[in-house]
Nucleic acid binder design. Structure first.
Lengths: 295, 295
DNA sequence: GTTCCGCATGAATCGATAG
DNA sequence: ACTATCGATTCATGCGGAA
């Protein structure tokens, strides 16, 4: 993993796989060839959020700030690739701001296809009570593509039927997180299939996942299971996944676990270091598990 | 209940409560005074759907078709009232059509406030998948208001607390609970009572409800629980609720059950008759229950 | 080694207060 | 009048100490 500027310019065009790069994705991506990325999965800083690291983009300026970046995304994405955007509109003056709607319309004018909108139901959203609204328990996962036909591997995200299987899936994923991560290279779907492989159905466009909690230092804004789901659905092992707002590197962790290559870009040096540490921990966990299995 | 045109013109301005009226809501509402409706809850014909009765509005014409009607809705709605629109964008040529996004933007230009967007998660939608998408399991419930302050009765829709609290509180003895409760009366132990006393919490903006089939001819309408929830939240008993695309009359049934007055408008004579029959059945059920109680 | 419970902490939003 | 900051509100979850 390289974060130094010197290495970027000569390294990326030749081989930009499995790197975390510090910088503005709009600039960094200029060095990436056209039609070279299989999946872009990202959660950009929401308007006026994360101002400490991203400078707090004003809601009214959000589309203008984001559009040049999506132009680069469009260029580097393979024609059969997908762009999954995790975003939610802020409340401004007591009503939802329209920057997400405007962004979708603007991106369509640039050639993007608004193929689908998945729903992430967050079980543990921020609490609070106000006179005019309840807790915001969902976020958009907007699926853009460059063309009508794109790669989608639906069988890879099939889920067990019925509540009994759901509860077992939950238990498995929790215990597996620490103990069996090395085997999770192929993912929980395969583990599950050991005992319920005959009762699997296709999921819907509603995803139920809790936000992941805090290892003291930092909180991942979305759970690893979220990029994992879309990586299974839209990529194959060996494909390359880009997260241009990499943050703590959750997308790259998912790619690493699933045997996909990643490219993570973030403007914050601190975030880049955090992501590199997380990925190093993943590597150590793998080694530890392998050693454990060997003994 | 009146469906004849002759009765409409003289009757509505004087008393338009608990009626099902056949006609185009854009025309019928002209007879309704300004600022007279407490809540508008409706699920308009989606683009290209219900073509037999509504002539199959083309997606590209949807906003132009819908906007004049929302102007009337705006006029008849009380300043403190709410307009809840159940809608979902169709897939056209492999991507989501943008008429819902455009509708929200157009309505805001006319003075509507896009206060919130609730999510209806349809738990039992029809199974099925397509090469480029899974089954669509959610719909928007867009909450528009005329002004920043509006009527909202949040306590009416509180829900039982989650499993985590049940499991965590199950070991508290009855004496502990009583002691803590009594302390609340004397002003002590308020913190404890926050946990022990509370078995109801406020919901979020995600609604989990199964779809309902009223009968074989009119499939996949929304469940009565859906308007019921919003009627509880945004109206009080005696308030008047409008559904300008009344269909089989589910909104009116909810209003009737909750002691709210209703006004249902639909362009289809068949739907109007169906709704009137449903409401008559409700009335008969009530009478039957009362008689049973009397004996 | 389990289970249980206390506690801290969030992609939040509102209203009031201050400059 | 308009923006910036701050406290209050609220609940699902993980962590860690205790039983």
């Amino acid at each position: 993993m390289f974060t130094e500027t010197e290495q970027k310019k000569e390294f990326i065009p030749v081989d930009f796989r499995n790197k975390i790069i510090q910088g503005d994705c709009e600039d960094i991506l200029k060095a990436i060839p056209d039609n070279s990325i299989d999946l872009i999965f990202t959660s950009p800083p929401y308007a006026d959020q994360r101002s400490a690291t991203y400078g707090g983009i004003k809601p009214d300026k959000y589309v203008a700030w984001f559009m040049p970046k999506t132009d680069e995304f469009f260029r580097v994405l393979k024609p059969t690739g997908s762009f999954v955007l995790n975003i939610k509109e802020r409340v401004v003056d007591g009503e939802r701001h329209t920057y997400v709607l405007e962004l979708i319309l603007a991106m369509r004018k640039k050639g993007w296809r608004w193929t689908e909108e998945y729903m992430w139901h967050k079980k543990n959203s921020h609490p609070g009570k106000w006179p005019n609204r309840f807790r915001d328990n969902w976020e958009r996962l907007i699926h853009f593509t460059k063309q009508k036909n794109f790669n989608m591997y639906q069988d890879e995200v099939m889920v067990p039927v019925g509540d009994w299987a759901q509860s077992r899936l939950k238990n498995l994923s929790e215990t597996d997180k620490k103990r069996d991560n090395s085997r999770v290279g192929s993912g929980f779907g395969k583990n599950i299939s050991n005992w319920v492989d005959r009762d699997m159905v296709y999921p819907s466009n509603v995803l139920h996942m809790a936000t992941e909690c805090y290892n003291q230092q930092h909180s991942a804004v979305f759970p690893v299971a979220l990029p994992e789901w879309f990586l299974r659905l839209f990529t194959q092992p060996g494909d390359i996944v880009l997260d241009p707002f990499n943050g703590s590197g959750t997308t790259c962790v998912a790619a690493d676990r699933l045997g996909r290559d990643y490219l993570g870009i973030d403007i914050s040096q601190d975030y880049c270091e955090l992501a590199i540490n997380r990925l190093q921990n993943e590597l150590n966990t793998k080694k530890g598990n392998n050693k454990h299995e060997a003994t």
